[in-house]
C-alpha cells in the first residue's frame, strides 16, 4: 500500500505526490499519526507490562487480531459505503452453533456444514442489504434486529451449551501453526487484508463503494447500481463473520453460541480508529490494519497488566468514543 492521499485511497494520487520526497509523503499521510501512537503504546507496554515483548506474545497478538480483524476489513467497506453492520458477533455465534449442530446432530461432513453455514450467513447479510434499498430499512436497524435474533437462534440451537465437535483435522484451521510457528488465523488475517485492499483499490466495485458512500445520487446517475453495492458489502461482513465463527469453532473444538460477543464493537472501533469516516465515503484498508493492531495490542496489554476484565470493558467502550471524536475532528478540518 503506497497511497499517500489524505482523503481516500485514490489510484490517481501517485502523479503529483511522486514529486515529493518519501519522508514528506509519509508525514502528509494521516495514518502516520496513528502509526506513531501505535508505536508509542507498543513501547510503553513493552516497558511496563510483564511478558508483553516476547515472540510468543507477539504471535499471540496476531492470533487475537485475526478474530476481529478479518471482520474489520469487510466492515471498513460497509462503513465507507455509508452503512453499518452490528450483527457480525451474532452471525459468528450462529455459524459456530449451526455447524456443530449439522455435524453432530445431522451427521453432515464438516466441509459441507461449514459451506452451508457460510451460505446462510451471506444470505442474511445480502437480505439486509436488499431491504436497505427496497424497503428503505436502515442497515443499522436491520442488523440490530439480526444482532438480537441470531444470537437467540444460536442459543436455541445449542441450548447455550457448547456442542463438542470431533473433527481433529479441522482444528488445524483454527489453532494450528504454519511451519509450527505462525498461527493459522494470523495467515487468514493477512490474506484478508491483501484481498480486501486489492478490492478497495483496484476493482471497479471497490471504487464504487467509495462513490456510493460519498454521494449515492451521483453514483446512481453515473450508472452504478447502488443496490448491488450495498448488497455486496453487507454480504462481505456476513461472510467474514461466518469465517470468524468457524475459526472459533475450530479453536474451541466445539460449536458455541456465546462466542464473539462484542465483535461488532472491536471491528467498528478498529475501522474508525484507522480513519474510516462514519459518514461514509472515506477510509482505507491499510488504516484499518493499523487500527486492528492498535486495538489488539491494547487489549493484550491490558491482559498482560492483569487489569480487571470489567476495567478492560470500560477501556474498550472509551476507545470507541475516542475514535469517533477523532473522526469528527478530522471531518471538521477536512
Amino acid at each position: 500500500m503506497t497511497s499517500q492521499t489524505p482523503v481516500a485511497e485514490s489510484p490517481d494520487t501517485a502523479a503529483p505526490a511522486a514529486k515529493q520526497s518519501p519522508l514528506r509523503r509519509a508525514l502528509a499521510w494521516e495514518g502516520t499519526g496513528l502509526l506513531a501512537v501505535l508505536i508509542a503504546v507498543f513501547i510503553i507496554l513493552s516497558l511496563i507490562a510483564p511478558n508483553f515483548l516476547t515472540a510468543a506474545n507477539m504471535l499471540n497478538i496476531l492470533q487475537q487480531a485475526a478474530f476481529f480483524g478479518i471482520v474489520a476489513f469487510a466492515m471498513t467497506l460497509v462503513i465507507v459505503s455509508g452503512e453499518i453492520d452490528v450483527s457480525v458477533g451474532s452471525q459468528a455465534a450462529l455459524t459456530s452453533s449451526v455447524v456443530a449442530y449439522m455435524v453432530v446432530t445431522m451427521g453432515l461432513p464438516m466441509w459441507l456444514a461449514a459451506l452451508l453455514a457460510i451460505v446462510i450467513a451471506v444470505a442474511l447479510g445480502a437480505g439486509i442489504g436488499w431491504i436497505r434499498d427496497a424497503l428503505n430499512v436502515p442497515t443499522f436497524i436491520g442488523t440490530l434486529a439480526l444482532y438480537l435474533a441470531l444470537r437467540g437462534v444460536a442459543h436455541l440451537v445449542t441450548n447455550t451449551f457448547p456442542i463438542p465437535v470431533d473433527a481433529s483435522e479441522f482444528f488445524y484451521w483454527g489453532s494450528g501453526r504454519v511451519f509450527g510457528v505462525i498461527p493459522v488465523p494470523a495467515v487468514y488475517f493477512f490474506l484478508t487484508f491483501v484481498v480486501v485492499a486489492v478490492i478497495a483499490r483496484f476493482t471497479v466495485f471497490g471504487r464504487s463503494v467509495y462513490a456510493v458512500g460519498g454521494n449515492p445520487k451521483a453514483a446512481a446517475l453515473s450508472g452504478i447500481s447502488v443496490r448491488r453495492v450495498r448488497i455486496l458489502v453487507m454480504s462481505g461482513t456476513a461472510f467474514t463473520a461466518a469465517i470468524t465463527g468457524l475459526m472459533h469453532t475450530a479453536q474451541l473444538a466445539s460449536g458455541n453460541s456465546t462466542i464473539a460477543v462484542g465483535l461488532e464493537f472491536d471491528a467498528i472501533a478498529a475501522a474508525v480508529i484507522g480513519g474510516t469516516a462514519m459518514a461514509g465515503g472515506r477510509g482505507t484498508i491499510i488504516g484499518t490494519l493499523i487500527g486492528v493492531l492498535f486495538v489488539a495490542i491494547l487489549l493484550n496489554g491490558m491482559v498482560m497488566l492483569g487489569l480487571n476484565p470489567y476495567v478492560q470493558q470500560v477501556v474498550r467502550g472509551g476507545l470507541v468514543l475516542f475514535a469517533v471524536l477523532i473522526n469528527v475532528a478530522r471531518t471538521r478540518t477536512a
Binding site: 481516500a8 485514490s10 483499490r201 483496484f202 471497490g206 460519498g214 451521483a218 453514483a219 465515503g281
Partner: peptide, 24 residues
C-alpha cells in the same frame, strides 16, 4: 460530484460503470 474523491476518480465514474472489466 462525489466530494471526497479526487478529480480523476470523479471523471472516471461513468466510464468505469460502463466498462466491462472489473479491474481498474
Amino acid at each position: 460530484i462525489v466530494p471526497l474523491l479526487g478529480v480523476g476518480e470523479n471523471v472516471m465514474l461513468m466510464a468505469r460503470s460502463r466498462g466491462r472489466s472489473p479491474w481498474i
